[in-house]
């Protein structure tokens, strides 16, 4: 066997020891946040230290296991705190932006993939270059446009518009790449039977591209769900916060509600972490493929 030679050289227990140490490093912060969430308190200490702590006391304060279990943080963050409302805001914004963004991207990507027209290359190139625009540079004008001109500050629709449009260039590149791989013979056959481009797009290309559309939509959703800076800049009113802004609100500035933060973080993270673990192999190929083309 190919690897047998190397296996003899490095005993597996060393590899396991290394991997376990690394796993502790990666999992510890996650366990920490779970512990804080389950502690039922707002403190960011796992255990209260006595006045003159021994090493054992300190070790207890590091061990990610709550001194007592309580679900009160989860319950009150969803009921007493406006966190349910923030989650709803996030969900509306992320879903709205995904639907609008993917719908626009699909049609555009189809045209870029199938039609030859003046400006095609220029359009794709400018979409690519737009990925290099630093967020801060466009954030100021966007703030002026959305808040001062359109009066959409602290509204969900303002955020939907921003997220949807900013996701278009990436989505178009992803979808165009996939549309290019769909054989043209299918469409040519449909043309012979008298179908127009609209019908071909709707009943042949879109159904075939379902996997790519699903992946693009999920990326787009995750971006909207996790976005922080723009939401923090556009959302001034507390009940219009999205979940990221709200979580930061719990522990930013003078607030120190670590229990709410921890419980909220877990609720927010579970869906995206599961989605992510499911999607990761597409993510890598999508990202590296995109940058190789650039």
């Amino acid at each position: 066997m190919a690897g047998s030679h190397r296996e003899e050289r490095t005993p597996h227990w060393i590899l396991h020891a290394f991997l376990v140490a690394t796993v502790i490093y990666t999992v510890y912060p996650v366990l920490w946040v779970i512990t804080i969430a389950l502690s039922g308190k707002q403190s960011l200490a796992i255990a209260d230290l006595p006045a003159d702590p021994t090493k054992l006391d300190r070790a207890r304060a590091v061990l990610p296991w709550p001194t007592r279990f309580a679900f009160s943080n989860f319950i009150s963050v969803m009921t007493d705190q406006p966190f349910a409302r923030w989650m709803l805001n996030s969900a509306i914004v992320a879903i709205g932006a995904t639907i609008v963004g993917v719908a626009l991207s699909c049609t555009a990507a189809y045209a870029f993939s199938r039609f030859k027209f003046p400006g095609r290359r220029f359009g794709m190139m400018s979409f690519l270059v737009s990925q290099m625009f630093p967020g801060t540079l466009t954030l100021i004008p966007l703030y002026i446009i959305i808040v001062q001109w359109l009066g959409l500050g602290s509204t969900l629709s303002g955020l939907v518009i921003v997220y949807a449009t900013t996701s278009i260039p990436f989505s178009v590149w992803m979808l165009k790449g996939y549309f290019d791989t769909i054989p043209k013979e299918l469409e040519e056959a449909a043309v012979m039977e008298g179908a127009g481009p609209g019908k071909i797009f709707w009943s042949i290309v879109l159904p075939l591209a379902k996997p790519a559309i699903a992946i693009t939509a999920l990326f787009s959703f995750m971006t909207g769900w996790n976005e922080f800076i723009q939401a923090a800049t556009f959302m001034d009113k507390e009940d219009m916060y999205t979940a990221p802004v709200g979580l930061r609100f719990f522990v930013g500035g003078f607030q120190q509600q670590w229990g709410y933060f921890a419980a909220g973080s877990i609720i927010v993270s579970i869906p995206v972490v599961l989605l992510f673990l499911y999607l990761q192999k597409y993510l890598v190929s999508g990202l590296t493929a995109g940058s190789v083309k650039g």
């Binding site: 626009l104 555009a108 446009i145």
Partner: peptide
Amino acid sequence: YIAPAIIGTTLLVFFP
């Protein structure tokens, strides 16, 4: 086909 995407990005990506 490309008009909606182009208009959207022009207004909120390229113009900014």
